[in-house]
Design a protein around this nucleic acid. Structure first.
Length: 303
RNA sequence: CGCGGGGUAGAGCAGUCCGGUAGCUUGCCAGGCUCAUAACCUGGAGGUCGUGAGGUUCAAAUCCCACCCCCGCAA
């Protein structure tokens, strides 16, 4: 089958690889290279880099609505387009161009977590499971008919980082299955619709006046990006991993309860920080962190 | 030329401004002490101070030059 692939970040790369293995990928669409990172150098998207290594023609239009972009797309005469975290809205003209239309790989169990940040929002909300939905695209935001679903478990150890990789892998498997089996499209239920708002950097600041469980979920959801953090002695400390623990302490919120980073949170709940990072330093275990950073029992990090 | 921090013992850091015997915490090894603790005490091993048969100097982790690598911010 002649497939056009549309995707941009690391998440979509395994999907592209999987498609290349099983089908004829005739073109790849991705976001144009933008200045990024230190030095603001122009960095091609991960998908573009991978596509070029395969020698597949890459298209990087700024928009599909304007100019001749949609005509170019139609001229490819594809059987189907597979879209995964592309980052551009597909106009009707594009959606209808391939013989079998456009199908999307979405990182949630629709209709829950439609939108931009389904992986992070599922963890943040404390969901016990999430997954991948393969769907036929229509003009709405993740509203198309569903073709296939795959469930992935969320455990207390799951971070956005590990879940990202697991879902990416799952997506790469399911898309092949969907293309082979050609399942019957099913309408999305009207019940249970939620939206996964884009992550704002300002959300990453840790408010210790919340339940430990909620803070923990945020920490896991924001690992690795944008990384939940607090400010202590004027320095930003990022927290990448934490464990909720029981405590009988009535210490004020933000107080360090022992010599190993157990922090008092709201209503007598407590959170042990287990992986952190100082400015300019690498991510490290709490053990290593404490060897060079004094944060003793009795201090308060919420002030 | 976007802004900035860093590379020193296995690990995490101080020392660099103001050049003069390589330090701290932890880990490791040996021994001691204790009803007991991540307890405490004593001794010990472990370092080309990122690289350069670079520059300056009587003397460089420290000052100068070049390069490599890691990271934070912004985007």
């Amino acid at each position: 089958m002649k497939v056009v692939f549309m995707g941009t970040p690391e998440f979509s790369v395994p999907v592209l690889e999987s498609l290349v293995k099983h089908h004829e990928v005739i073109a790849v669409y991705t976001q144009p290279a933008r200045p990024a990172g230190r030095g603001n150098k122009l960095i091609p998207s991960p998908v573009q880099q991978k596509a070029e290594s395969f020698g597949i023609p890459v298209f990087t239009p700024i928009s599909l609505r304007k100019g001749t972009a949609s005509d170019e797309f139609a001229a490819l005469n594809a059987d189907i387009a597979v879209v995964c975290a592309y980052g551009l809205i597909l106009p009707k003209k594009v959606l209808e161009a391939p013989k079998k239309g456009c199908i999307n790989i979405h990182a949630s169990l629709l209709p829950r977590w439609r939108g931009a940040a389904p992986i992070q929002r599922a963890i943040e909300a404390g969901d016990k499971e999430t997954g991948i939905t393969i769907m036929q695209m229509d003009e709405g935001l993740d509203t198309g008919d569903m073709l296939l679903k795959g469930i992935v478990e969320i455990t207390p150890e799951t971070t956005a980082s590990t879940l990202h990789d697991a879902l990416s892998q799952k997506g790469a498997e399911l898309i092949i299955q969907a293309l082979e089996e050609n399942p019957t499209p099913q309408k999305q239920p009207e019940e249970g619709v939620t939206y996964a708002e884009k992550i704002q950097k300002s959300e990453a600041y840790i408010d210790w006046f919340m339940d430990a469980e909620k803070i923990k979920n945020k920490i896991m959801a924001f690992n690795p990006y944008p990384a939940a953090h607090f400010i202590y002695r004027g320095e930003r400390i990022k927290v990448f991993n934490a464990v909720v623990e029981k405590t009988t302490s009535k210490a004020p919120v933000g107080e360090v309860l022992d010599s190993n980073l157990l922090i008092a949170c709201r209503g007598g709940t407590a959170l042990r920080l287990t992986e952190l990072q100082r400015e300019g330093k690498k991510k490290m275990s709490a053990e290593d962190f404490l060897k060079g950073f004094e944060l003793k029992k009795g201090k308060n990090i919420a002030v």
